[in-house]
Nucleic acid binder design. Structure first.
Length: 419
DNA sequence: TCTGGGGTCCTAGGACCC
DNA sequence: TCTGGGGTCCTAGGACCC
């Protein structure tokens, strides 16, 4: 059996955790730059605020309805996530951390356990020990565990936040209940296509023939179909090193100056390089893109990207930043109002399997240098040591007007309790 | 004035090889 | 006039996830 634990309205729940006056109140969390709504408490959902709502358009609505608004506080969410995952680890020998707020548990050898009770216990202990409310679904396959989880979420009173699909009757009832567009792995495009052929529920999907699914939804769709039929097809995934690492941001205002944007590109490249070294890889190419604001039709639009291939693999911030800037030089055009830029590094090789080249190699002095920089930044706070070509005056700040304290990761932000 | 960020996998088609 | 068969690798684009 597989279990799927999913935190309820995770970011909103984290914000509420250290501010109990918000219990029962509507909360929304905004994306970077305070742009759009990316998380909502149940109360906010009930007010009809959609996912992705544009913050400035809802400003008045938020005030009128007493909605508490927060800037995204990823330091807090990341730390709370690892606390939840640590608790879950005690409940299974095999855990797959699927996202910041979700994990699959493989329950092998639990034949003699009462899984209803087990699910209830997990949910209760996560709640008690971390303060985060979660729901759990348990079923013979991953896709069905996802379905079971949805049922637990939808009917918390009836299910005690935990639901088990352990026989055919429950499986069929659940699949008939679940709309096709809510099935894990069926997105917008596929659900439109499926409805055209009369598939409206997850159950309908399990009834159409394999060849059609294979042709229209590829092997991915076919695996999903089998998983929903109760034939285990998807297993836990191992932690794999990433294949791409990206740092991309919208700017708080439009930028027109070459030097301003070049500084951003450098900083993004450095940030990618740090993540790359953390997984002990080197990369051999970088993609750089810049674009104007596509939502402003009246402005002249330009967006372009370029891939720069390196003559040698490297994970040096200095070298990667230089290649990224070379790419930027190729695509930058004067006279446009730029709103967003990004750096994506690709084509990774393990750091200890680098094929040396007779003529052209990564500067060997950089590796120890990077180690020292990473160590200093780790103990004295991020960005303590930067490249000279990065912004030195901390001019670049995201718009984060409603940022909550980093309660769990900064000593100065820790809560004070008056007894 | 203001519209997020970071990932994965699969497929078809083109270019190339012998 | 007739124009094979079997491969690999790469890329862009499309779908999906949170």
């Amino acid at each position: 059996m597989f279990g799927l634990v999913d935190c309820n309205n995770f970011y909103a729940s984290c914000e509420r955790l250290f501010n109990p006056s918000l219990i029962g109140k509507p909360i929304v969390v905004l994306s970077n730059n305070d742009g759009a709504v990316i998380a909502r408490s149940n109360e906010a959902k009930a007010l009809g605020i959609p996912m992705g709502a544009v913050a400035y358009q809802y400003e008045k609505f938020f005030i009128e309805n007493g909605v508490s608004v927060f800037s995204a506080n990823f330091a807090l969410y990341g730390d709370m996530s690892s606390r939840v995952m640590t608790i879950l680890q005690e409940y299974t020998p095999e855990l797959e951390i699927y996202s910041i707020d979700e994990a699959f548990l493989k329950l092998v050898g639990f034949e003699y356990f009462d899984l209803n009770q087990y699910g209830f216990d997990i949910q209760k202990h996560v709640r008690t020990w971390s303060g985060i409310p979660v729901c759990i679904g348990i079923a013979p396959t991953k896709a069905l565990a996802k379905v079971a989880n949805k049922i637990a979420k939808k009917y918390p009173q009836h299910t005690n936040n935990s639901y088990v699909i352990d026989n055919e009757e429950k499986r069929i009832k659940a699949l008939k209940w679940l709309k096709i567009e809510d099935v894990w792995g069926i997105g917008r495009k596929h659900s439109i296509r499926l409805k055209e052929v009369g598939v409206h529920t997850a159950y309908d999907f399990t009834q159409i023939n394999d060849a059609w699914v294979r042709r229209n939804l590829s092997v991915v769709g076919l695996r999903l179909k089998h998983d929903l039929q109760g034939i285990p097809t998807l297993d836990l995934e191992d932690i794999k090193p990433r294949k791409n690492i990206a740092t991309t941001r919208s700017f708080e205002r439009n930028l027109t100056e070459y030097n301003d944007i070049k500084e951003r590109i450098t900083t993004f490249a450095v940030s990618c390089s740090e993540k790359l070294r953390r997984q002990n890889s080197c990369c051999t190419s970088v993609m750089v893109f810049i674009r104007t604001n596509s939502h402003r039709a009246e402005l002249e639009q330009y967006n372009n990207s370029v891939v720069v291939k390196f003559p040698f693999p490297t994970n040096s911030s200095i070298e990667i930043a230089k290649f990224a800037c070379d790419g930027f030089d190729r695509i930058f055009r004067k006279g446009y109002q730029y709103k967003k830029a990004g750096v994506i590094i690709m084509d990774f090789k393990p750091q200890d399997e680098i094929q040396l080249n007779l003529f052209d190699n990564s500067n060997p002095k950089h590796l120890p240098l990077m180690k020292v920089i990473d160590r200093i930044n780790a103990s004295f706070g991020q960005q303590k040591i930067k490249l000279a070509s990065q912004d030195q005056k901390r001019v670049w700040k995201m718009k984060q007007e409603k940022l909550s304290p980093r309660y769990t990761t900064r000593l100065s932000d820790i809560i004070v309790i008056k007894c």
